[in-house]
Amino acid sequence: MSLTRRELIEKATKFILLTPAAAAALEALDSGSIDTMPDKYKQAEHWWAMTIDVEKCIGCGACVQACAKENQVPDGHYRTWVERYVIDGYGDEQPEVDSPDGGMHGFPDKNRPGAKTFFVPKLCNHCATSPCVQVCPVGATFESPDGVVLVDESYCLGCRYCVQACPYGCRYIHPEKQTVDKCTLCYHRITKGLTTACCEVCPTQARVLADLKNPNDPVHEFLRNNAVQVLKPHMATHSKVYYRNLDGAVR
């Protein structure tokens, strides 16, 4: 067996840096065995987004639970969460907002006669020009070719600059991994033809996964027929989570 120098260095690096198990996993990756299913998924044919109809959200928190279960989200951190707004007046009054445990266990009733009140689900906006991707010093967070903002947890330094740069509070540091963590739009699901865990369990279809490059996706109808808004449009992040019936007080 003859090795080129490069191979030799790579082998040595693997040997020194990786535990045998991790090295084995890497070998498996190289030979493509993770991808045993025939890969029908073509990144270039998709551009993922989500639509949220605020008027349909019942604040059950099923999405928050399902997300935590599907993605092993650590306690006290949220890839998606639900906020409750209670707006008393439209003068100087600040809206009253809460999100106990991210809304995971629903909301105790709050009866404020005369007030306007509703739930707003939140998640990573998978911005097309993401401030978080812009500031990552090493390329550990990035926009995938199909429009999903993802994190390479084996490459992230844990510098937290992206957490500071996200205007929506969607990122956190994973307490065990010490790397940044966030919504992946269930990339492992949507690339298999499934919907995201949160959309799968949403009982009223308040949140619906959308593929903007698919001409048959109902999202086009939705965007055409409704007044839609994104969060903090003045940030010019080109968010791809489109809200219908979003109140101006929501931030």
Binding site: Q134, V135, V138, G139, Y155, L157
Partner: peptide, 21 residues
């Protein structure tokens, strides 16, 4: 840093749009 041992990546693959890089 959460992973100080990875800081050399800033020299390997500096992201030109990042002030920190």
């Amino acid at each position: 840093l959460g992973h100080p041992e990875r800081s050399f990546e800033m020299y390997l693959t500096p992201h030109t749009s990042s002030a920190m890089a």
